[in-house]
Computed example of a mutant assay.
Amino acid sequence: MLKLALFFLVISIIAGLFGFTGISAASAGIAKILFFLFILAFVVFLLIALLTAKTIL
């Protein structure tokens, strides 16, 4: 998912350089949404791993 966010970020930058502002804004919005979804999934999986981990003692 993070790769997709980076992909859309690169598309946004390239489109902005060539003057396609509509495509650039849309790609940046998609990249932002995917990035925050990635962060949310990371935190959820981290909490699950921490709560279900068994201590080795």
Rank of each mutant, 00 (worst) to 15 (best):
L47W: 07
I14F: 09
L37G: 07
G22Q: 14
L40N: 05
F7K: 14
L6Q: 10
I33G: 00
G29K: 04
F35S: 09
A26V: 14
L17P: 02
L57K: 14
F42T: 09
L46N: 01
I13Q: 13
F18S: 10
F35V: 03
L57W: 11
S27V: 08
S12M: 07
F7S: 09
F18V: 15
L9G: 08
K54G: 03
V44K: 04
L47C: 12
L2K: 10
F18A: 09
L46A: 07
K32Y: 06
A53P: 10
S12A: 15
L34H: 02
A15H: 01
V10I: 09
L37Y: 10
K32R: 07
K54Y: 03
I23C: 00
A31S: 11
L6W: 04
A28M: 12
G19S: 00
L40Q: 07
T21P: 01
L9W: 05
S24G: 08
V10P: 00
G19I: 00
L4D: 14
S12G: 15
V43H: 00
I13V: 14
K54D: 03
I23R: 00
T21S: 11
F8D: 05
L46H: 00
L51R: 09
G16H: 03
S27Y: 06
V44L: 10
F7M: 10
V10M: 06
I33A: 07
F35K: 05
L46M: 05
F7Q: 11
I30H: 02
I33E: 06
L51A: 11
A31Y: 01
L50K: 15
F45N: 15
A26L: 15
T21K: 08
A53S: 15
L37F: 13
A49I: 03
K32I: 08
F20E: 13
A26I: 15
T55W: 13
L6E: 12
V44A: 05
A15N: 02
I14W: 06
K32M: 09
L4R: 13
F8M: 06
L2H: 10
L17F: 13
F45D: 15
L4Y: 14
F18I: 14
A25L: 15
F42I: 06
L17V: 12
A5D: 05
S24P: 04
I13T: 14
G16V: 01
I33F: 04
K54Q: 06
A25T: 13
G19W: 01
A31T: 01
L17Q: 11
T52D: 04
I39M: 06
M1S: 14
L34S: 06
G22V: 14
F18E: 08
L37C: 12
G29E: 01
A25Y: 10
L34T: 05
F42L: 12
M1I: 11
K54F: 03
A15P: 00
G29I: 07
L9T: 12
T55N: 15
F45A: 12
F42Y: 13
L9C: 08
F35A: 10
L2E: 10
F36Q: 09
G19C: 00
L40D: 06
G16F: 02
L37P: 02
F36C: 06
